[in-house]
Design a protein around this nucleic acid. Structure first.
Lengths: 246, 246
DNA sequence: TTATTTTGATTTGTCTGATAAATATTACAA
DNA sequence: TTGTAATATTTATCAGACAAATCAAAATAA
């Protein structure tokens, strides 16, 4: 099955709108503009850039979407502090992303969640612990140690919340559907693996994780979290080997 | 000092362009369109949506920026697989982002880099090790155990590369300037801290990290990485306490 | 004077129509 | 079959108009 992807021309030279978008960003930076600062009105910008108003507006519309600028009739435009992940929110969709991107996101999530363990143990309070205990107990086990989706989500979300890092929290909310999607799509892989782990008593559940947290055992919690993700981890390893990773 | 931020109306009702953007995304999903699939031409979409062509084009321009669609004269428009972080690339700018977002990003980076340690040790090959050794040796120490910026960058970039996760790599490239910016802006904090660490011999350098990698000592490498970031970590802790974190 | 209302002007939001540029399609020739 | 020219179609860009919002100033009332 030949394919000539190598020869395909991909980057049709950039359009005027692309160029204007770049120029606007450069302009903001070179003028050292900060959120709250006003920027020239459309008319002036269009003239200065030497483009029609529609082209300028298409570029501005992009920046508006990213939350970089805010505009109101008669009031003009001002810079605003953008949401870091706003752009990502629109493209994270298991249907549109390819498998490689989805797997990357899953790996990203696992790494991040293992990475926050120390921070979580450092930050955790008794109130947090109470809260977590409720979540764990509420998560009635369905079968083979599976937690209900809601409990699953709440538990991990709570861990992210304990970090106090809003960006990390927002990120978690975004990629959670990806984990769900992969778990469902490849359940033929995960179910037997989990079953086997249950049989040998090696399955690390939220209950186990919680116990380490209660003891504030950093090393133990990190190791347990790592093991908690072991099925995903081996899944990704297998997938990467199939694709002959670099 | 009263302020009535709570009462401020922030979300002036969404514009037509915002609505069209949403509708387009919904449309793609409901039709289960995948990258490569063609979408109707502008004329038809505008009529179907009941908006002018300019409004439609502003919405399409946004999706084009995210890499969701590609369009060529006379050829029509097709869905494409978007870059996950393309939107973020445009807004990550220490000048435009507020301090909280910058600190969050630094915390994000630290967590992620600690989280990939296990994966790095698992994936690392002799070729990788050679490569890393070169980078470490090339990174001439300036003063107080500081590595040159280039070596600093290359070393950590290489670690991310070893994961084989493109999204993680891309993310690292994006947030690296943030770490640089913070280190520079708050050097009055970092320099004495590092000096003290050097004096007590507790400073964890790239050399140390490399030794653990060579031994493929997961636990040791993770712990060393955690200590490598200790100055940043305590910096963030202090900042969060100042702001009375949740 | 001070407060309120009215009026006018300005800026973004949207629509429409026109032209340019690129290229898929068709028709035709070798 | 292959190559070339003419045609038609679609996106890219421009230009001008009007609508809606709201800021600023003028006019009016207290």
């Amino acid at each position: 099955m030949n394919d000539f992807n190598e020869l395909k021309i991909t980057s049709q030279q950039s359009t005027l709108v692309d160029q204007v978008e770049d120029k606007l960003l450069d302009y903001f930076k070179s003028m050292e503009l900060r959120p709250g600062d006003a920027i020239p009105k459309e008319q002036e910008l269009a003239v200065a850039l030497g483009v029609g108003r529609s082209v300028l507006r298409e570029a501005l519309s992009r920046l508006r979407m990213l939350g970089l600028i805010d505009s109101r009739t008669r009031r003009g435009m001002i810079l605003t502090e953008p949401s870091l992940l706003g752009g990502m929110r629109r493209v994270i969709d298991p249907q549109i992303l390819g498998e490689e991107a989805l797997f990357d996101l899953l790996g990203f999530r696992i790494a991040l969640e293992i990475g926050i363990c120390e921070l979580v143990v450092n930050n955790i309070t008794n109130k947090h612990l109470e809260n977590l205990e409720n979540i764990v107990n509420r998560g009635v086990v369905k079968n083979f140690g599976e937690y209900t989706p809601v409990s699953e989500y709440e538990f991990h979300t709570k861990l992210y919340a304990i970090t106090g890092n809003k960006t990390i929290m927002e990120f978690q909310q975004l990629i959670h559907p990806v984990s769900i999607f992969i778990k469902e799509k490849f359940k033929d892989y995960f179910l037997p693996v989990n079953k086997e782990l249950d049989k040998t008593g090696k399955r690390v559940t939220h209950q186990h994780l919680f116990e380490y947290l209660k003891k504030k055992d950093k090393e133990g919690f990190s190791r347990a979290m790592s093991n908690h993700f072991a099925p995903y981890y081996s899944f990704l390893k297998k997938k990467n080997n199939n694709n002959g990773g670099n």
